[in-house]
């Protein structure tokens, strides 16, 4: 069968709503789009562990300490699930876990803008759990019906765990919102700090050619803007109900257009942060990952070596 016919047959499968498996024939373009998406998703989970990890040693009660440990652990676990999916996609390209993480250190794969930013107070840990995870959940839930079956399977598991993260984040911020003046102020400042990043998180309003291809392949179904609108729908009323303000004087729901109007985030600034790892915390956190990946390589190599010595 020639390439064109194979491609046509593949597209028929996609259009019938069939799910694709790792060992199925797939167009290179499909593989590369998926790999780019899932690789970025996976390393974002792993980099996403760091802003909250900063608060693990300082969590203010024993219950919070345990909960945030469990939450950061889940993020790492999600990274594990996603990287496994990416590894199987990357295998025909001669890449495995080691190389996919090397890519992160070398700046060859991006991670979400939110994880480049600072989290200077305990309220940031709460807002990350509440709003950053809230945004991520909307993103991930929208992918549950993706055409790539291994991705769909891990997303199911991930979303189930995210439901704990939502409650965890909400509980922290609800406690702060009902707390002292100082706590409320800390919470408001954290919301102010994260708002613009959150809007950027969903990606550009226009449907880029790559995004269109992903929609064609049914890798994703919704556009960036649809998801951002969903986020605003769910979270703007909740933020306001707590008496918090949103740092955007132009934010309002337009009844005629049936959508939220908002001040655009600084696309250029965040674009640079993500593309060149130029956020306030990019370098430091990549440094942490380098410590784990490169400075601990001796452990991985020793474990393999010793197992082989034992086996012979």
């Amino acid at each position: 069968m020639n390439q064109d016919a194979r491609h046509a047959q593949f597209m028929e499968r996609i259009e019938r709503g069939e799910k694709i498996e790792a060992t199925d024939w797939m167009p290179d373009e499909y593989r590369k789009l998926l790999l780019k998406l899932i690789h970025m998703h996976g390393v974002s989970e792993i980099m996403g562990a760091f802003p909250e990890k900063e608060w693990v040693p300082k969590a203010p009660t024993l219950k919070r300490k345990l909960a945030i440990m469990a939450k950061v652990q889940d993020e790492m676990g999600h990274g594990q699930l996603l990287l496994r999916v990416a590894e199987d996609l990357a295998a025909p390209l001669g890449k495995g876990r080691e190389e996919l993480l090397d890519d992160l250190l070398a700046g060859r794969v991006k991670f979400h803008n939110v994880f480049h930013m600072e989290s200077p107070t305990w309220a940031d840990a709460g807002v990350i759990g509440w709003l950053v995870d809230g945004a991520a959940i909307i993103n991930q839930a929208a992918l549950l019906d993706t055409s790539y079956a291994p991705y769909a399977r891990v997303l199911k598991r991930i979303c189930a765990e995210e439901s704990f993260h939502m409650q965890h984040g909400e509980n922290i911020i609800l406690t702060l919102a009902r707390g002292t003046k100082g706590q409320r102020q800390m919470l408001q400042e954290a919301v102010d700090r994260w708002w613009e990043s959150l809007l950027f998180f969903f990606g550009p309003v226009e449907v880029t050619p790559a995004a269109q291809r992903m929609i064609d392949y049914r890798i994703r179904i919704k556009t960036n803007e649809e998801l951002r609108q969903q986020f605003l729908n769910k979270y703007v009323p909740r933020i306001r109900s707590l008496g918090l303000t949103i740092p955007d004087p132009h934010l309002r729901y337009d009844e005629k257009q049936k959508k939220w109007l908002y001040t655009q985030p600084d696309w250029e600034k965040f674009g640079e942060i993500v593309r060149y790892n130029r956020g306030p915390k990019s370098e430091e956190r990549i440094g942490l990952r380098r410590f784990a990946h490169e400075e601990q390589r001796w452990v991985r190599e020793a474990m393999v070596r010793a197992h082989k010595m034992q086996a012979v």
């Binding site: 594990q80 699930l81 496994r84 590894e87 876990r97 399977r153 891990v154 598991r157 991985r300 474990m303 393999v304 197992h307 034992q310």
Partner: peptide, 11 residues
């Protein structure tokens, strides 16, 4: 339920 990377079966 899924897969993982490990240096040996016991780990």
């Amino acid at each position: 339920v899924g897969s993982l990377n490990a240096p040996s079966p016991d780990i």
